[in-house]
Write a protein that binds this DNA or RNA. Structure first.
Length: 424
RNA sequence: GGAGAGGUGGCUGAGUGGCUGAAAGCGGCAGAUUGCUAAUCUGUUGUACCGGGCAACUGGUACCCCGGGUUCGAAUCCCGGCCUCUCCGCCA
């Protein structure tokens, strides 16, 4: 959520920066609501002040044995007027709040302007595509041949878009999770969190999934609970409605499954593990002082990159343009892995700085050096998403005989297994 | 799921209609003092919003789990909800 005070002071500037996202937002409507709201608030508070002093006076008079009937009647009328104004005020507050929740974050000044994802900027590339002496297969063929992926049977029980890992394939998934958690906790200073996988409306609103993304989430029938689309939700919301008393920065890493309806996502690159309703992810979250957030942002990116480097996977880093950063983000980098079996780049990490946008929604604050209460900055980045990482491993480490070599850093987590062989 | 108890400031914990934004203690902060690594004394110490001031600050309103209600007036009374604890049931 944006700061209403800044919006009041600088509507044109804010409007201009929002327009960089490629859509226009009606700030005048919010400002009009805000003005009416403040007028009513001043009015009702003045009446309440009168009522408070009159009520105290009645108390004194009663004690003195004086008659208070006329005064009580007068205060009762004031009370009725207050109730009317408060009802109107409440409506305005709600409408203003709802309107504010629909306005996205301002892109940071450093974010390249652009009209679509085609305008995202390539920041750097690491490694190079592996040379194959044979035509590399897509992962769904590799997985089927090795009998480690079974989409058909998963679909029978859950429909399309759900993975079923088997044998060494299931262990590989688990090994990747363990490897990443260990890397981030022991090398990068993150504290491991195992959070709830279902969250309520307030948490979802706090990080920005609601109200805009309701259609993308699974909601439980008869419950005000959603399956989390990312660990960002439960982890960032740890300190919702708190003034954090622990020293900043706070760095958390969490493994969770992620659930996404992916409504309307049919089309390219949806086969196999490319796009799922359920996938595993190791997520990095940082809560930092405002002045340090851009430094922390670069750190998160480097921590996600460390995973890919240790696995020896060719990747590139993109800086998203103003049209492509997500609703809540002020700035975002994407990490994409090369998938030779599909001749495509696959997004495995999205690292965002939300500045105080989520903190303001979720009420996450701290005391700065002067002792003043201030909103924190929140960041997160996938460190990294499993399914497409898994794709890249199968497609990059495949051999002509149909086997897949296990990257060395994963072998300790695979009981020393060096290679997944086709069933004979 | 059933029965009971309870949810007050950073913490412990008083408070059953006006004198309570809230006692007391602890903790924190500031000062004083003491020669012993800490004690004693004094003062101070919540959040949000609206208004005034460049600002330090200041006037007001709201907040004692949340939402309604009663009343001139609610932390205090009534109703609904949520959560925690104990016991029982069920269960990985």
């Amino acid at each position: 959520m944006l700061d209403i005070k800044k919006l009041r002071e600088n509507p044109d500037e804010i409007s201009r920066r929002l327009a960089l996202r490629g859509k226009t937002y009606d700030l005048q409507a919010v400002l009009a609501l805000d003005q009416d709201r403040r007028r009513l608030q001043t009015e009702t508070e003045k009446l309440k002040s009168e009522r408070n002093s009159a009520s105290k006076e009645i108390g004194r008079m009663k004690k003195a044995g004086e008659s208070t009937d006329a005064m009580q009647e007068s205060v009762r009328k004031t009370g009725e007027r207050i109730a009317e104004i408060d009802a109107e005020l409440k409506g305005l507050e709600q409408r203003q709040h709802e309107a504010m929740l629909m306005i996205p974050n301002l892109p940071h000044a450093s974010v390249p302007a652009g009209a679509s994802e085609a305008d995202n900027q390539l920041v750097r590339t690491w490694g190079s595509p592996r040379e194959f002496s044979f035509t590399p297969a897509p992962h769904w063929d590799i997985g089927a041949r090795l009998r480690i992926l079974d989409f058909e049977r998963a679909a029978r029980m859950s429909g399309a878009g759900f993975p079923l890992f088997r044998g060494a394939g299931a262990r590989l998934e688990r090994a990747l999770i363990q490897f990443m958690l260990d890397l981030h906790t022991t090398q990068h200073g993150y504290t491991e969190i195992a959070p709830p996988f279902l969250c309520g409306t307030d948490a979802m609103t706090g990080t920005g999934q609601l109200p805009k993304m309701a259609e993308d989430m699974y909601q439980l029938a008869g419950e005000q609970l959603y399956l989390i689309p990312t660990a960002e939700v439960p982890v960032t919301n740890i300190y919702r409605e708190e003034i954090i008393s622990e020293p900043l920065p706070l760095s958390f890493v969490a493994y969770t499954p992620c659930f996404r309806r992916e409504a309307g996502a049919a089309g390219k690159l949806t086969r196999g593990l490319n796009r799922l309703h359920q996938f595993d992810k190791v997520e990095l979250v940082k809560i930092v002082e405002p002045a340090k957030s851009y430094e922390a942002h670069e750190q998160i990116v480097s921590h996600a990159e460390a995973v890919l480097r240790k696995l020896g996977l060719h990747y590139r880093v993109l800086e998203l343009c103003t049209a492509d950063i997500s609703f809540a983000a002020a700035k975002c980098y994407d990490l994409e892995l090369w998938a030779p079996g599909q001749n495509a780049w696959l997004e495995v990490s999205s690292c965002s700085n939300f500045e105080d946008f989520q903190a303001r929604r979720a009420g996450i604050r701290y005391r700065n050096a002067e002792g003043r209460v201030e909103y924190v900055h929140t960041l997160n980045g996938s460190g990294v998403a499993l399914a497409r990482l898994y794709v890249a491993i199968l497609e990059n480490y495949q051999e002509a005989d149909g086997s897949v070599v296990i990257p060395e850093v994963l072998r300790p987590y695979m009981g020393g297994l060096e290679r997944i062989q086709p069933a004979s």
